[in-house]
Design a protein around this nucleic acid. Structure first.
Lengths: 244, 244
DNA sequence: ACAACAGACTGAGCCAGATCAGCATGCGCG
DNA sequence: CGCGCATGCTGATCTGGCTCAGTCTGTTGT
């Protein structure tokens, strides 16, 4: 049911609910105009009104908030198949910035179309809400990590979560994945300094847990890593669709 | 339009959208069985399946996650008018615990009723989604605070946010409010130790910014506090309904 | 009326992670 | 080619917030 000819978005939803061919094509019709964005140039910035929502087709982006002190906190990364800026469309005005980490392709989603699709194919509504809930659960998990995990646990957890998400859309395996993030970005996401991220990555490597070098994450010892990070695989990791 | 005879929930939504009398009564019909819970005894715990969603009528509760190390991170507090456990109902199984901070009254909400009400009164759907988005925005703001604000800023921000939320449901003014949280709970929410929360509160008091003693928060210098906390009032604070 | 307990509060010492400073590498570009 | 710049990496030093250990106060229960 989950086949490679569909978009990463359809592929991800297919992991939540077993979708029919008709539902898959309704999903693909959702994708509106395809747009490209260049790495580093903000797609949406704080306070902007009436911006669009997107589904990410290729590349990575990050959502972040700026603080008055000049620092920033990255709230979440989005990978292919993820929704972009859905919440702030509801609010009419964006409460955070969205910056492409790499060059990016995304298709615009008109909120009207989305609601339309929902009323015609209610199972899709459930699947999309499910995906949205998962995203929120990830933000919560991120919050917990920053509040109560030390730098090493936090970094391990972060990289494990990415691994699980990428696997879901076919961009990685249990052994590793390619990751375009700089240590500066990781620092802004993890609430650490870039210097310290560097040290922590070295420690993880020296411990034989994982290596992150030259844009590639390689997992050496999944079990010990899961233990260290107190990682709950259940909310990301499953083999068949949850909803038959 | 926002009058005191309605529930805190209706009152809160009334601040988002100007609602008609009929819409207000549809809201009040949403409230199902009224239940009571005692302070400190979990209403919902991690992993529980098919629990209910509630609208909080009186009292405070907190949502938290437990870590393997025995520590916990409080993700959010809910005050009267707030939804409880809406996201985890979608997931079927709760991903966090919910504990009443005080004795609590809450009315059960059946997801079916909710969706029913939505199709009959679409403006209510918008208002409820808006409220849900605001809650998510607060979690994001919480994340930013823990990641990039120091203890004093974080504490100030937290107490300001509570102030704005309580004002919205008529439980506080710009000058202060009563707050049943212990310093231990604040610590678990702010990612600090209780000892340090105590010191920070003393500092805020000595600086003439605010006092939190004997269950009462009193704000002495709102402007300096907003400046210190880098608090964005716009996303919580408004005078009339945003949607006429 | 006293014990038992929870919560507020304080001081001393310690450590994880920040900051500062500097070096090494690789890459785009005039 | 050589310059500028971004990113990775490392050591030295400083500090915010933690831990431990304890006192004081107010409340609950018997």
């Amino acid at each position: 049911m989950v086949s490679t000819q569909h978009s990463p978005f359809a592929r991800k939803l297919g992991a939540f609910a077993a979708l029919s061919g008709e539902e898959f094509s309704a999903l693909d019709r959702l994708h509106g105009r395809r747009k490209r964005f260049t790495a580093g140039r903000d797609m949406v910035h704080q306070g902007e009104v009436n911006h669009s929502a997107y589904i990410l087709a290729s590349g990575w982006v990050c959502s972040y908030k700026l603080l008055s002190g000049g620092t920033r906190q990255i709230v979440d990364f989005q990978i292919p198949g993820d929704f972009l800026g859905l919440r702030s469309v509801l609010f009419r005005t964006a409460d955070h910035n969205i910056e492409p980490v790499t060059n990016v392709e995304a298709s615009e989603v008109l909120v009207g179309d989305l609601l339309d699709t929902f009323s015609k194919t209610p199972r899709l509504a459930t699947a999309v809400l499910w995906a949205a809930s998962r995203d929120e659960a990830m933000v919560v998990e991120h919050l917990v990590g920053i509040g109560r995990r030390d730098a090493k646990e936090r970094t391990a957890h972060f990289l494990l979560e990415l691994s699980a998400r990428l696997k879901l859309v076919g961009l990685g395996t249990a052994l590793g994945y390619s990751c375009p993030l700089s240590q500066y970005m990781m620092a802004d996401a993890l609430g650490l300094s870039a210097v310290h991220v560097n040290r922590v990555l070295r420690e993880l490597r020296e411990d034989g847990l994982l290596t992150f070098q030259h844009g590639k994450v390689t997992i050496h010892d999944l079990d010990r890593l899961v233990l260290l990070a107190d990682f709950d695989k259940s909310y990301l990791d499953h083999d068949g669709p949850l909803l038959k």
